[in-house]
Design a protein around this nucleic acid. Structure first.
Lengths: 157, 157
DNA sequence: TATTGTTATACTCTATAACTATA
DNA sequence: TATAGTTATAGAGTATAACAATA
């Protein structure tokens, strides 16, 4: 994680690293989000799984794992827990009996909806610091920056 | 770390979580930064330490640890390595013989300058996707969002 | 008695390899 | 033989406790 001076302002003419700035805001968001999810008895990854299932339903475990960028072996324990909580259910894929399809239960959908509303309220409070132009620019900037450049696919990186 | 669907676009009318968007951009920046630092034989935290020392010199280890938000016990091994690389040096604090002051060597300053230029060039390439108004708004938005609200200091969180 | 730097230890998160049952 | 799910294991990163020297 990129970090930087938090409280004290850096006394320099140089600009601050963009990565440090983004990492700091990300940390602010995560720190604000965690107690909200804790109150709903959801982990960060649990919330991400529910969010993915709420939008594109009936994924297979492997597809879900790749979609949210979470290791498939770790997803298993996470799904076990969510299933124990009654938030998701797994059923064998009729087309391929090796695979299992995952979907939200009614309770899972309700839990996700409640958590998402908490999160969005928190985000709205944060975004209230910005004026309209800043908000619009921020959203478009986030969209522009969220994909890595496709040109350098076979470079040194 | 907040994650979300990367390649596929989520088919929903709902807005995407702000935290997920920021986390994604942060990851893009880190992924772009790491090979640059690797080429300079610097870890992410090593770069952060050099950056802190380059701006506010002659910190004590504890002050440095608190300033960059890195555990003081882990800072020791990191400083050992940077010292082995000849990038920093430690000397006892004449005012308090328990403490040790850390500062950049000439080589450390040069190494940091080179790495920082690489990082800034990468950032410039990314920011070139934005127009002037977006860039200005992004910077002011990042500054506004990077501090948590001071009102809720004694809440449930 | 409290604090700085240090070491040792435990805990969490993550990545890799191997096994089963299907295809 | 290859793949989906699972289990077990090892590694990196992080946090906590305890110790020596000094205040």
């Amino acid at each position: 994680m990129i970090a930087t001076a938090t409280g004290t302002r850096i006394a320099t003419v140089e600009r601050e690293d963009l990565g440090a700035q983004f990492a700091r805001v990300t940390r602010v968001l995560i720190d604000a989000e965690r107690p909200l999810l804790d109150a709903r008895e959801l982990s960060m990854w649990g919330y991400i799984v529910l969010s993915a299932l709420a939008t594109g339903d009936a994924d297979t475990q492997l597809a879900l794992s790749e979609r949210i960028g979470y290791d498939k072996t770790r997803l298993i324990g996470l799904l076990d827990q969510l299933q124990l909580q009654g938030l998701v259910e797994r059923e064998p894929d009729p087309a391929d009996r090796r695979a299992r399809r995952v979907r939200l239960t009614a309770a899972g959908r309700a839990r996700y909806k409640a958590a998402r509303e908490d999160v969005h309220a928190m985000e709205d409070a944060l975004l209230a610091r910005l004026d309209d132009a800043e908000r619009r620019a921020l959203h478009s900037a986030l969209a522009s920056l969220s994909s890595r450049g496709r040109r350098e696919s076979s470079g040194t990186g």
